[in-house]
Computed example of a mutant assay.
Amino acid sequence: MPPIQRPKLAVGGFTEALALETAPFGVKVTALEPGGMRTSWGKRASADIPALLPDYEPSVGAMIRQLKGLWGLETGDPARLRR
């Protein structure tokens, strides 16, 4: 069985554990875990990435290039959130 991808595992995992503990008392626990939000953070944060050592380029470099292609395309729209 593949691992479950949970980027917010600290909050989600704690909430699930808490829900199991409180269920016998009739207490229900829920957490809202928002997805990615389209901002300029990724582009700003990656502006000063130092050159990678050659040994890291194949793996880390590929991951950085892939992420750079996705930054700014997240589905969450900050303008719609403000409403």
Rank of each mutant, 00 (worst) to 15 (best):
M1K: 14
M1D: 14
P2T: 01
P3T: 00
P3I: 04
I4T: 15
Q5M: 12
R6F: 12
R6Q: 05
R6A: 13
K8L: 15
K8C: 15
L9V: 00
A10T: 14
V11I: 06
V11N: 08
G12C: 01
G13K: 04
F14K: 14
F14Y: 14
E16V: 10
E16Y: 00
E16A: 05
A17K: 15
A17M: 14
A17E: 14
L18C: 12
L18W: 09
E21N: 01
A23D: 11
A23H: 00
P24T: 06
P24S: 08
P24K: 03
F25A: 13
G26Y: 14
G26E: 15
V27F: 00
V27H: 07
V27L: 11
V27S: 11
K28L: 10
K28D: 00
V29Y: 03
V29W: 00
V29P: 03
T30H: 10
T30I: 04
A31G: 05
A31K: 02
E33H: 11
E33C: 10
E33N: 15
E33I: 11
P34T: 09
G35L: 11
G36D: 05
M37Y: 02
R38W: 05
R38I: 01
T39S: 08
T39I: 02
S40I: 07
S40Y: 00
W41Y: 10
G42Y: 05
G42R: 06
G42A: 00
G42H: 06
R44E: 05
A45L: 05
A45C: 10
A45Y: 01
S46H: 04
S46I: 01
S46N: 06
S46T: 03
A47S: 14
A47L: 15
D48P: 11
D48L: 15
I49R: 00
P50R: 03
P50C: 03
A51Y: 01
A51G: 13
A51Q: 07
L52Y: 09
L52G: 06
L52K: 06
L53S: 12
L53M: 09
L53N: 04
L53P: 06
L53H: 02
L53G: 09
L53A: 12
P54D: 08
P54L: 00
D55I: 13
D55Q: 10
Y56Q: 13
Y56E: 13
E57K: 04
E57D: 04
S59H: 13
V60W: 07
G61C: 09
A62Y: 06
A62D: 13
M63Q: 08
M63F: 04
M63E: 07
R65E: 12
R65K: 14
R65C: 11
Q66P: 10
L67R: 00
L67W: 05
L67Y: 09
L67N: 03
L67C: 04
K68H: 03
K68S: 08
K68A: 09
G69M: 05
L70K: 09
L70C: 02
L73C: 03
L73R: 04
L73T: 10
E74K: 01
T75F: 09
T75M: 14
T75N: 11
T75W: 13
T75H: 14
G76I: 08
G76Y: 08
G76E: 12
D77Y: 01
P78Y: 00
A79K: 08
R80M: 12
R80V: 12
R80P: 11
L81A: 10
L81N: 09
L81G: 07
R82H: 15
R82T: 13
R83N: 09
R83W: 05
R83Q: 09
